[in-house]
């Protein structure tokens, strides 16, 4: 129990610091790397929550594919790699106020509602097999819908990005 809490603390610290650095750094490639750290930290949290399949998918899809896409996006748009461009707009104080407000109200209501509820410890542990059973039976229609969505996104991205 204690070990879990310690690990949670470490991971959470990494995630929080990386997330903050990601939205404040002036170097866009650094921002992308901080995002990797956040995503990897979340993957570790999923392991902590016994969601092994989600953790694997997180690493495969996000860190593997999405991050590469982002790096390609940065490269292809020739975004200034150094501190050349001002990364944050003049309206950042309002944005900060809005997000603090949002975080405040969310955290307040979370504490108000869940208080010190403990996470269920004796619940069932879902292995990959359970997840796949569920996906291919109860959620087969949304699953098919997602596959169609991905196809549509694929075609849409090609149509948008090709040169003609």
């Amino acid at each position: 129990m204690v070990a879990q809490n310690i690990f949670f603390g470490i991971i959470a610290a990494v995630v929080v610091v990386s997330a903050l650095r990601m939205v404040t750094t002036r170097n866009i490639v650094h921002a992308a790397l901080y995002l990797v750290a956040v995503l990897a930290g979340l993957g570790a949290l999923y392991i902590l929550l016994t969601a092994e399949f989600i953790a694997t998918t997180q690493v495969l899809v996000y860190i593997g594919a999405v991050m590469v896409l982002f790096l390609f996006g940065i490269m292809l748009t020739k975004a200034p790699l150094g501190n050349v461009m001002k990364m944050t707009g003049p309206q950042w104080p309002i944005a900060a106020a809005v997000s603090v407000l949002l975080a405040g109200v969310t955290v307040y209501s979370l504490i108000d509602h869940f208080g010190s509820d403990r996470l269920a410890n004796d619940g069932p542990v879902f292995r990959t097999a359970h997840v796949s059973d569920e996906v291919f039976s109860t959620y087969i229609v949304p699953f098919e819908a997602v596959s169609v969505l991905l196809l549509a996104a694929l075609i849409g991205a090609i149509v948008l990005a090709r040169k003609d």
Partner: peptide, 20 residues
């Protein structure tokens, strides 16, 4: 677009506060 976004999220937060 970001001004609109600020309004959107800001009003969502205000509404959430009212709701709470």
């Amino acid at each position: 677009v970001q001004n609109y976004g600020q309004l959107l999220f800001g009003s969502a937060a205000v509404l959430a506060i009212v709701f709470v």
